[in-house]
């Protein structure tokens, strides 16, 4: 659900698409929860910086952030 903070729409660029942040989504950990994904199998880059898995809880997500969530797939 689209939310505002201080009158501003909270939206990030997630894997190349605009994505609205839920009101309770404050950190990368929250974002993972919102997306319902298994954090053990993903790697996250925020604004071109790889974020260490141990820091998801205390890394804030802000409107306008560019977030890439990747994982391993089959390849040769």
């Amino acid at each position: 659900m689209q939310t505002t903070r201080g009158g501003e729409y909270m939206q990030i660029r997630l894997n190349g698409k605009d994505y609205p942040l839920a009101e309770q989504t404050k950190t990368l950990h929250d974002l993972i929860q919102q997306l319902n994904i298994d954090e053990e199998v993903v790697i996250i880059e925020q604004n071109h910086q790889i974020i260490d898995r141990s820091r998801y809880m205390d890394t804030n997500v802000q409107s306008g952030d560019v977030v890439e969530i990747v994982h391993f797939v089959g390849g040769g």
Binding site: E68, I69, V70, G75
Partner: peptide, 9 residues
């Protein structure tokens, strides 16, 4: 071997 790709979030 394997590859790195976007998760279909």
């Amino acid at each position: 071997t394997f590859s790195v790709r976007r998760l279909d979030v």
